[in-house]
């Protein structure tokens, strides 16, 4: 195995592990840890394919920095009212687009299945993660995660991050 190939594979495996940890944190309802997947000033945005393709900037969720992410989670825990539900994420098709000084750019697919307390299950949405990942003290962190929902339609509401 050439060194390059070994390096590529190692990077891919590390990113896949990051994504697995990320979705399992959400699916396990360990949301207080969710901001830690980002750098301190990391950006998390959820938009739709429609807005993105029209070049329109408004997002459903727009957090700049871990503080805003933590605020989302504390609002969800203490203030927001909604029917209890859980997510199950599937991630696939990780593509490493570029590796540069300011980070590794990747694109991957996700699907989120939502299950309500009464057992009603549905495909909540699917789409793409467009990410910039950086190494922070030997750990991979999201510097920028843009969640692009395939459908602009949100059934009822969006409260748990994707």
């Amino acid at each position: 195995m050439t060194t390059t190939l070994a390096n590529d594979l190692s990077l891919r495996l590390r990113i896949e592990a990051l994504f697995a940890d990320y979705v399992q944190c959400i699916d396990d309802d360990a949301l207080e840890q969710w901001p830690d997947f980002f750098t301190g000033d990391g950006v998390y945005r959820v938009t739709s394919r429609e807005n993105l393709s029209l070049g329109l900037p408004v997002c459903l969720v727009y957090c700049e920095g871990r503080g805003m992410m933590a605020d989302r989670i504390s609002a969800m825990r203490t203030a927001n009212i909604f029917e209890p539900h859980t997510y199950n994420h599937s991630i696939s098709a990780l593509k490493i687009l570029s590796v540069a000084v300011d980070g590794i750019r990747t694109q991957s697919n996700f699907a989120v299945f939502r299950t309500m307390a009464d057992g009603n299950m549905s495909l909540f949405n699917c789409g793409r993660y467009m990410d910039r990942i950086v190494e922070d003290n030997g750990v991979l962190k999201l510097a920028d995660r843009l969640v692009v929902l395939e459908s602009r339609r949100i059934d009822t509401l969006l409260v748990i991050p994707i």
Partner: peptide, 24 residues
């Protein structure tokens, strides 16, 4: 101003911190 609007829009819409309950 646009950046301010984008941030404040966290409060409203389907994922709005002060409005999501109206969805359910």
């Amino acid at each position: 101003m646009q950046e301010l609007r984008l941030k404040v829009n966290n409060l409203v819409g389907p994922a709005g911190l002060i409005s999501m309950e109206d969805g359910c």
